[in-house]
Amino acid sequence: MKRVIFILSLLLVWTCAIRAETESEGTVASGKVKDGYALLNDLTKIFEEIAGTGKGLGSANERLSAVIADTRATFAAGQIDAVFHHRFRRLLLVFKLILTPVDVNNDVWEPVIKKELSEFVLDTLGEVWVWRVKGLDSIERMAAAVEEEFVNLWLYLDTRSQRQELKKKFAGSMLPPPPAKKKE
């Protein structure tokens, strides 16, 4: 009896330890720290399979979730700034909404999707966008908006150092001129 109790208690301790370890590992593995280019690169690869074969919806969703977690970890580690984080996260939201299967006639997501996507197109292309279920033009404009945002984000990363230098230069040139020497 004593032996049984002892073995059971050991088993309990081991289970608790394993559970705690798994939890902590899962948290660490919830997001990898990357830079902005790597995040953009990951996102550009998500939809290739669906665009080509029409398959892989599940894996695309999983990969998108991984990119979302990576974005979170990357921002927390200070590898991307708030502007890039905000805009990239919005792009992720757009992809998430596009990937969400929606029953158009009866779905609570419909107003959210309509609002978010139309605001995204308006902010990116400056066009008023209306969601039409079978409207090819609305799909085309949405694709154009996402492409535009991809390019914008890449340019944002690529011109970061130049922008910093330019701002420094502007700040330097805005200093007040030195006081004129008085003539004796």
């Binding site: 990898k32 830079d35 280019y37 995040l39 690169n41 550009t44 694709a143 492409e147 390019v151």
Partner: peptide, 28 residues
Amino acid sequence: VERGDRLETRENIRRIIRDNLLERFITR
């Protein structure tokens, strides 16, 4: 930190736009 290649990213974006991948993706 996992670093991405800026040229590879640019090439991916270029391919997406050239092959109209996004429109095909959303249509599908």
